[in-house]
Structures are given as C-alpha cells and as structure tokens.
Amino acid sequence: MPESLFGEDVIVRTIARIVAPFIQLFGLYVLMHGHISPGGGFQAGVIIASSFILLALALGLPESKERFKKTIRLPMESSGPLIYASIGVTCILAGGYYLQYGMAFLFPPHVVSAILISAVEIGIGITVMAMIVTIFYSMAGD
C-alpha cells in the first residue's frame, strides 16, 4: 500500500476526526428506525463501516486499526448470525415458525414484534459493519 494514499494533511485529519462520530450516530439512527423509515441493519452497518474507512483514509491505516482491533472484529462478525439464529429459534420455542414474531410471550404481540425486529436488525448491522471493515483492512494490506 503506497503511503501517498493516506493523507498527512492537518485539515483532513481534523475534519475526519470531527465528522466520524456524527456518521456513526446517523448509522445508529438508521439502525433503530429501520422498521419505521427506510433503512435497516445492512444500510446502518455500511454507514458505520464507512466512518471507519474515513478514519483509515485520513489518519492512516495503523492508527485506525489500533482503534478497531482484530480481536474485537472477529467476535462481532460471528455474533450477528448468532443473534439472528437465536431469535429465530426462540420464536420456534415460543410456538411459532422460524422468525415469526409476536407469539406467546409476556408482552402483547406488536410490542414483542417491534423489540425482536430491532434486535435482528442490530445483529445484521454488527455483522455487516465488522465484515466491511475487515474487507477494507485486508484489501488495504495487513
């Protein structure tokens, strides 16, 4: 990876550092409003991952990897499908089909449905975010 791709400009570094938390906040908004408005787990994961890509382009690859280590990324990649599958199996155990929300739980069906949809979206978002960042890191050179 040529060093010239990663800028040393102080303006770029400062702007990226200021903007990155807001991009992540917007990603969380898209994640939590996915069942009401356009968006959802995949889009939110891509948005949050793009904030990490911005940090890597502005601050340089080693500093960005220091903030998002492989020991954190690997469990995040595999925890998303685990959340998804466990919620689906929970719906089977509650007496419905796979991922059939709102079966016989303690709360009314629409409340259970809203909570479980949000949980599934969070699982998808975690996996997509970690996977895209990992693809970027491995393409940029380890």
Binding site: L5, F42, S50, I132, I135, M139
Partner: peptide
C-alpha cells in the same frame, strides 16, 4: 423505492468506490 436508493447510495457510491480505488492502487 427509498430503501433501495439508500443502499445504492451507501454501498455503490461509498464502499465500492473505496474498494475499487484500493484494487487500482494494488
């Protein structure tokens, strides 16, 4: 179809471009 548009803007214009530029630099 704002959902598809959202995905296209995030993936197509954002991530894919960065990955293509990385591939070109390689």
């Amino acid at each position: 179809s704002p959902d598809v548009g959202f995905t296209e803007a995030a993936v197509g214009a954002g991530v894919t471009t960065v990955l293509f530029i990385l591939a070109i630099s390689r």
